[in-house]
Simulated scan of single mutants.
Amino acid sequence: MPIPRWVRRVVIAPAAVCVLSGLLITMPVWLLVVGLVSIGLKGRRRLLRVVWLVTLYCVLELTLLLELFGLWLAAGCSAKRVRNPSFQLRHYRLVAWVLNVAYRQAGRFLKLNVVTDGPDPDAHPGRPLIVLCRHAGPGDSFLLTNALVNKYEREPRIVLKDTMQWDPAIDVLLNRLPSRFISPNPGAEGDAVEDQIAALATGLDENDAFVIFPEGGNFTPGRRTKIIESLKRKGLHSAARRAEKMIHVLAPRPGGVVSAFEAAPENADVLLVAHTGLDHLLTVADVWRELPMDKTITMRFWLVPAAEVPRGNPQRQVEWLYHWWEEIDDWIEQHHPATNRP
């Protein structure tokens, strides 16, 4: 059940500011204690790295909340005015700054290196983008959004899980920018969700990027099995057989993608994104064991011109989507780390 908006604004956000402030005030003590404890621990100073990342999260979360409150005051405490184009630009600049800081610090303390492969997403400048991204491993949405905002100067419109609204900064920020929080299991509200996705994809301009994760959730072997079984129960045996052959990705949910294709401008190119390097990290224990990660993450882009994207035929669009997800699965098979456990 979604958290009521007034609870998130009146209770959760102010409470988060108080808790984060308290944590940061006492952080020197925590760092000293952790530093002493970690002396006797094996594991390449894992505990210190975790505490530093938690500290960074607290600083950025608190900074975001205070900045967002300041922008609301600057807009005259008007929920409508704070969403006008000039204030949206200021919000996107705030997003760019936060992502840049987090990206640099994560790279430094986790020893991560991100490389890109494939066509440049800005090969067709001045045209809107529909971005379809594989969802697996920690931080993939963060890496993608950072690339779109800071490298390609795009303004993303993101479809994401409604549970992300538990984070006060994400809740306030993305509810002011074009985005949609949806349930990963909409049930009877499926049509309403697709209508929301269509509304979000409508009116994309030359520097917009509509971002959706067709799988609907992070890849896990258990989730893959459940989706295949669900397809079989629904009588979608052909889709189930194709899903069984894809061992690194989940079968895509086509409803949102089809709605986006039909609502987006006809000149919108499609960017497909896959990545590998962290996809074997399925649990908190996996992440802890790998710290510091000392890894290279490869992000692979495929850019499909608007003229090659099927329009007006949902059946062809579903077939097109499954074909590309099979291509992505093949690419991951060729590039995933030897430690991957599909």
Results as ranks from 00 to 15, higher is better:
Val7Arg: 10
Val10Phe: 14
Pro14Val: 08
Ala15Thr: 11
Cys18Pro: 11
Cys18Leu: 15
Leu24Glu: 03
Leu24Asn: 07
Ile25Phe: 05
Thr26Phe: 14
Pro28Trp: 00
Pro28Lys: 02
Val29Cys: 04
Trp30Arg: 09
Leu31Arg: 13
Leu31Gly: 05
Val33Gln: 00
Leu36Ile: 07
Val37Asn: 04
Val37Asp: 03
Ile39Glu: 15
Ile39Asp: 10
Gly40Pro: 04
Leu41Gln: 13
Lys42Phe: 15
Gly43Trp: 06
Arg44Cys: 15
Arg44Thr: 12
Arg46Pro: 02
Leu47Asn: 01
Leu48Gln: 01
Arg49Met: 06
Arg49His: 02
Val50Lys: 01
Val54Thr: 09
Val54Gln: 02
Val59Tyr: 02
Leu60Ser: 06
Thr63Lys: 12
Thr63Gly: 15
Leu66Glu: 06
Leu66Val: 12
Leu66Arg: 08
Phe69Ile: 13
Ala75Arg: 03
Ala79Cys: 09
Phe87His: 09
Leu89Val: 13
His91Ala: 09
Arg93Met: 15
Leu94Ser: 13
Val95Tyr: 00
Val95Met: 02
Ala96Gln: 10
Val98Phe: 12
Val98Ile: 14
Val101Lys: 06
Ala102Asp: 05
Arg108Pro: 05
Asn113Cys: 14
Val115Ser: 03
Thr116Glu: 12
Pro121Gln: 03
Pro125His: 02
Cys133Arg: 01
Arg134Tyr: 05
Ala136Met: 06
Ala136Asp: 09
Ala136Pro: 04
Gly137Val: 04
Ile158Val: 13
Thr163Pro: 03
Asp167Arg: 12
Ala169Tyr: 06
Ile170Leu: 10
Asp171Gly: 13
Val172Asp: 08
Leu173Tyr: 01
Arg176Ile: 04
Ile182His: 07
Ile182Val: 14
Ser183Pro: 11
Ser183Cys: 06
Pro184Ile: 08
Gly187Lys: 02
Asp195Ile: 10
Gln196Trp: 02
Gln196Ile: 01
Ala199Glu: 12
Leu200Tyr: 00
Leu200Glu: 01
Thr202Ile: 07
Thr202Asn: 08
Leu204Arg: 01
Leu204Asp: 00
Asp208Gly: 00
Gly217Ala: 06
Pro221Ile: 07
Gly222Asn: 08
Ile227Met: 11
Glu229Gln: 13
Arg233Phe: 12
Gly235Arg: 12
Gly235Phe: 01
Leu236Met: 14
His237Glu: 11
Ser238Ile: 14
Ala240Ile: 06
Arg241His: 08
Glu244Pro: 01
Met246His: 04
Val249Thr: 08
Leu250Ser: 01
Leu250Glu: 03
Arg253Leu: 14
Gly255Asn: 03
Gly255Val: 04
Glu262Ile: 08
Glu266Pro: 05
Ala274Met: 09
Ala274Phe: 06
His275Pro: 03
Gly277Pro: 04
Ala285Ile: 15
Asp286Arg: 09
Trp288Pro: 09
Leu291Ala: 14
Ala306Leu: 10
Ala307Asp: 15
Pro310Ala: 12
Gly312Asn: 11
Arg316Asn: 10
Arg316Phe: 03
Arg316Ala: 15
Trp320Asn: 05
Trp324Val: 00
Trp325Lys: 01
Glu326Asp: 07
Glu326Thr: 13
Gln334Gly: 04
His336Gln: 14
Ala338Ser: 13
Thr339Glu: 15
